[in-house]
Amino acid sequence: MFWVYILRCADGSYYTGHTDDLEHRIVLHRNGECEGYTATRLPVELAWSQDCSTREEALSAERQIKGWNRKKKEAMMRGDWQEVARLARRRKKGDPSTGSG
């Protein structure tokens, strides 16, 4: 089993990742043991996660979500798929992503 997940950082930003051991990875993030983005934005909390059948599926979902803007990520975390679809239609093909939001 694999997971794609989103953490809410102390500065209000989101971090998206994937793992094969969600509980352990969250502990590592919370303890600042995952070098990089979250280590300088503690504390972090798990905002959302979804299980995936394969690592490839989890990585693909991670990459897709990382390309979304903040509003679209928040709609997904609320389970508001109608809003996710509406926000997807608003972007014109070829427009750059607005970042990790």
Score class of each variant (00 low, 15 high):
48 W>N: 02
50 Q>H: 09
50 Q>F: 02
50 Q>T: 04
51 D>S: 09
51 D>W: 05
51 D>L: 00
52 C>R: 13
52 C>E: 13
53 S>N: 04
54 T>I: 03
54 T>N: 05
55 R>V: 04
55 R>D: 14
55 R>G: 15
56 E>V: 03
57 E>S: 15
57 E>I: 05
57 E>P: 04
58 A>C: 12
58 A>S: 15
58 A>M: 09
60 S>E: 10
60 S>Y: 06
61 A>E: 13
61 A>H: 13
62 E>P: 01
63 R>H: 13
64 Q>V: 05
65 I>R: 07
65 I>E: 07
65 I>C: 07
66 K>H: 14
66 K>W: 06
66 K>E: 15
67 G>K: 08
67 G>R: 09
67 G>S: 12
69 N>F: 07
69 N>M: 06
69 N>L: 03
69 N>Y: 08
69 N>W: 07
70 R>Q: 12
70 R>T: 03
70 R>W: 02
71 K>C: 04
71 K>E: 15
71 K>Y: 02
71 K>T: 05
72 K>G: 01
72 K>H: 12
73 K>F: 07
74 E>G: 03
74 E>M: 09
74 E>D: 13
74 E>V: 02
75 A>L: 08
75 A>V: 06
75 A>M: 10
76 M>L: 14
77 M>P: 01
77 M>K: 01
78 R>Y: 00
78 R>K: 14
78 R>W: 01
78 R>V: 00
78 R>H: 06
78 R>E: 15
79 G>W: 03
